[in-house]
Nucleic acid binder design. Structure first.
Length: 492
RNA sequence: GGCGCUAUCGUCUAGGGGUUAGGACGGAAGAUUCUCAAUCUUCAAACACGGGUUCGAUUCCCGUUAGCGCUACCA
């Protein structure tokens, strides 16, 4: 007899999003933790679309979830859709009913959000519905009366429901405090609780790793597993991700920051984004922060998961793209960018620059990438950090920028005029440029900085730019001379 | 309201009966430098509150407070 949940067997975990919106960062983290657990232990990662709520599910949402997961680049081994497994859910529900552990409730469904306030309107069970005899229940059902199927939660004898959570420890709750929750709706569709448990059992899920918002639901799930004659899987609940104001992240309140695609579009590297999310609610406990996927996989364990909610520290009214995100996420992204080989960075930058209308090819980007690698935090920064490499004509800039520190317009003109002569003859390589320009500065009696600044502004159109000689090398003699000429005109 | 969970610098966190309570981001200052970055150094910054237990609690227990979650024929 093979033991299904023997400790030696490989874990089977699942990520079960419900397609009612885009892929949320919280969901993404849940997916990542499941994935890490599966890969760390050589287990199986299952993707299950929990689409039993026909009212709210949309194909657009399914598409956007796949889009987000695709960007993350983490694979899964099996996929299921709950809407294709409804017969199994019903079968499970009726088996529970046949054991006397569920009953038909003929009370009409609550119309709307009367109980939204939460304060009152709660009921644990309805004795009138619960105590209808089986014979009468069968008769009314046969007569076509509609009903929901409810779980008959044991309320006598002070029975306790318990389970051990890998993160939150021993959990105990009085069965009497659990309401008679629904298994089947009056339209015959399974509820989340039923469908989820029936599938977890059937798919032989060994570990359920999900958000802490399900911690108290787990008591109901334990009841279902037991009623269905199954051993409940292991549970591990994750602390929630919250906004700076402490409230749960939501699209309505917090906008696009909660969508995975926002990070993608802003120029996050998926590996950096994953790294960031892992550090929210989990710690390797050795002060490591900048980690590769492999390092995360090796280090991951359920023991490292925290119990308190983590704040995603973004600014509510963000002035810049960068401010939209948690500073740590941005820093981590910059770290990952710096760690990328130039070829790879270049390949990731190219489509962004081209997509924005710049005329660049791979060869050019390969030369530009090392110059901006330490100066960009988001891939999109290539547009503002390297634009002058890609355009024919520099956008207009203030000629006053050409004036060096402790200098004046006359000095700028003098420097530029001399640079034009020097650069016409020197070889466009770092060392010769360095030597020639420094010699020119000495000749002119100006400091090196006073020599370089006017040239930098002339060729880049701004003061802040990559190192001058490397920049000139990439720009080439033609462009350099042309831009110096234009600068001289501005000064005149 | 009921039930449950949580509480270390602004944020993410390490730690744990006796520590100068550690790291990181962000902030400040400095070094370096052709600007900007990167890099390096330094600084400021925390155990929610009240009771216990104990020779000694930030750590263990209880309570308070606060936050969050669940309390749907949503998931």
């Amino acid at each position: 007899m093979p033991e299904i949940h023997s400790s030696s067997s490989k874990p089977r975990v699942r990520f079960a999003p419900s397609p009612t919106g885009f892929l949320h960062v919280g969901s993404a983290r849940t997916f990542i933790f499941n994935w890490l657990y599966a890969r760390h232990n050589g287990g199986t990662m299952i993707l299950r679309i929990d689409d039993t709520d026909v009212e709210r599910n949309t194909q657009a949402s399914v598409d956007s979830i796949f889009e987000g997961l695709k960007w993350l680049g983490l694979s899964w081994d099996e996929v299921y859709k709950q809407s294709e497994r409804i017969e199994w859910h019903r079968k499970t529900a009726w088996a529970i009913f046949e054991k006397g552990l569920a009953y038909r409730d003929f009370t009409p469904a609550h119309t709307g959000d009367a109980e939204k306030s939460g304060a009152q309107g709660t009921w644990l069970f309805n004795p009138r519905a619960r105590e209808v005899s089986r014979a009468e229940s069968d008769r009314r059902a046969a007569a076509g009366e509609s009903f929901a199927l409810r779980f008959r939660v044991p309320r006598e004898g002070g029975q306790m429901v318990r389970f051990t959570d890998a993160v939150y420890g021993e959990q105990v709750k009085a069965a009497a405090d659990i309401e008679d929750f629904a298994l089947l709706r009056s339209d015959g569709m399974p509820t989340y609780h039923l469908a989820s448990c029936a599938d977890d059992a059937d798919l032989r899920i060994s570990h359920i790793i999900r958000g802490q918002d399900h911690l108290t639901n787990t008591f109901k799930h334990v009841l279902i597993f037991e009623a269905a004659g199954c051993t409940p899987p292991q549970f591990a609940h994750l602390p929630l991700l919250v906004a700076p104001d402490g409230t749960k992240l939501s699209k309505r309140r917090h906008g696009p920051v909660v969508s995975v695609t926002t990070y993608r579009d802003a120029g996050f590297l998926p590996e950096a984004f994953i790294n960031f999310l892992c550090l929210l609610g989990w710690s390797p406990k050795n002060d490591r922060e900048n980690m590769t996927l492999q390092e995360l996989t090796d280090a991951f364990s359920l023991e490292g998961i925290n119990r308190s909610n983590a704040v995603v520290n973004f600014k509510e009214p963000a002035a810049t793209l960068e401010e939209t995100f948690d500073p740590k996420a941005v820093w981590l992204n910059a770290e990952h960018i710096r760690g990328l080989p130039v070829e790879e960075l270049s390949a990731r930058l190219l489509p962004i620059a081209r997509g924005s209308g710049f005329n660049v090819d791979g060869a050019k980007m390969l030369r530009v990438a090392p110059l901006i690698r330490e100066r960009i935090k988001l891939l999109r920064d290539v547009l503002t950090a390297a634009d002058f490499f890609f355009v024919d004509e520099l956008p207009p800039y203030d000629p006053a920028e050409l004036v060096p520190q402790k200098g004046n317009a006359a000095m700028a003109s003098k420097v530029l005029a001399r640079a034009r002569e020097v650069l016409a003859g020197v070889e466009f390589k770092h060392d010769p440029l360095d030597q020639a320009l420094r010699a020119a500065a000495q000749e002119l009696g100006v400091k090196a900085g006073q020599m370089f600044q006017p040239i930098r502004v002339a060729v880049c159109g701004r003061k802040n730019a990559p190192p001058l000689f490397e920049t000139l090398e990439v720009l080439g003699r033609g462009t350099t001379l042309k831009r110096i000429e234009q600068a001289l005109h501005k000064l005149a």
